[in-house]
Computed example of a mutant assay.
Amino acid sequence: MTPGAVVAGGLAGPWSAGAETPTGELQPWDVSPGIEGFFAFFALAAVVVALGFLVVRQMRRVDQNARVRAAQEAKERSEADGGAGVTEAEQDAPRSTEAE
């Protein structure tokens, strides 16, 4: 069977030129996606949820790595200054605006 014959006869189906359109009322099962559509939509939803979990996990890793890197850089800066740098606790402590 040649490729042209397959398209003309088999795969074109009722949508080929010259096919008559059905006359009559369409039934809900004629136009619904059926169980295949449900499974396809469910699989798509499962993939989206899984990707969401993976993205959240990756963002947490990136955030943790940034914290570790910032702490390491602060430690290296304080060691380079001879230990006279401001500690993290001193940076976070509230400062008094009153002159003593």
Score class of each variant (00 low, 15 high):
32 S>A: 15
86 V>I: 15
73 E>M: 14
2 T>K: 10
16 S>N: 14
85 G>A: 15
13 G>D: 02
52 G>D: 02
83 G>T: 03
95 R>I: 05
67 R>D: 03
72 Q>Y: 07
82 G>T: 01
37 G>A: 04
82 G>N: 04
19 A>N: 08
64 Q>F: 08
99 A>K: 08
63 D>W: 10
66 A>P: 00
28 P>R: 01
5 A>Y: 07
28 P>H: 00
32 S>Q: 07
41 F>Q: 09
4 G>D: 12
15 W>E: 09
12 A>S: 11
26 L>N: 05
84 A>G: 03
31 V>P: 05
6 V>C: 10
26 L>C: 03
35 I>L: 14
37 G>T: 01
95 R>L: 10
24 G>F: 02
65 N>S: 08
10 G>K: 11
94 P>Y: 05
31 V>C: 05
15 W>R: 14
67 R>P: 00
100 E>F: 09
89 A>Q: 15
33 P>M: 04
3 P>E: 13
97 T>C: 05
88 E>H: 10
9 G>C: 11
81 D>W: 14
51 L>C: 10
95 R>C: 00
98 E>H: 04
44 L>Q: 13
90 E>C: 02
7 V>W: 10
56 V>S: 09
99 A>W: 03
25 E>N: 09
17 A>Y: 12
80 A>M: 06
77 R>A: 15
80 A>W: 06
49 V>H: 02
60 R>L: 12
71 A>P: 00
32 S>C: 05
38 F>N: 00
17 A>T: 11
12 A>C: 11
89 A>V: 05
38 F>S: 01
21 T>I: 12
12 A>F: 04
95 R>Y: 03
70 A>V: 13
44 L>S: 11
58 Q>K: 11
68 V>R: 11
75 K>P: 00
44 L>I: 05
25 E>K: 02
54 L>E: 02
51 L>R: 04
30 D>E: 13
46 A>D: 03
59 M>W: 09
95 R>A: 10
94 P>R: 15
49 V>W: 14
28 P>L: 01
77 R>I: 04
10 G>Y: 12
23 T>Q: 14
26 L>G: 04
84 A>D: 04
14 P>R: 12
23 T>R: 06
81 D>C: 12
100 E>P: 12
93 A>R: 15
33 P>V: 09
92 D>K: 15
28 P>Y: 00
100 E>T: 09
62 V>C: 04
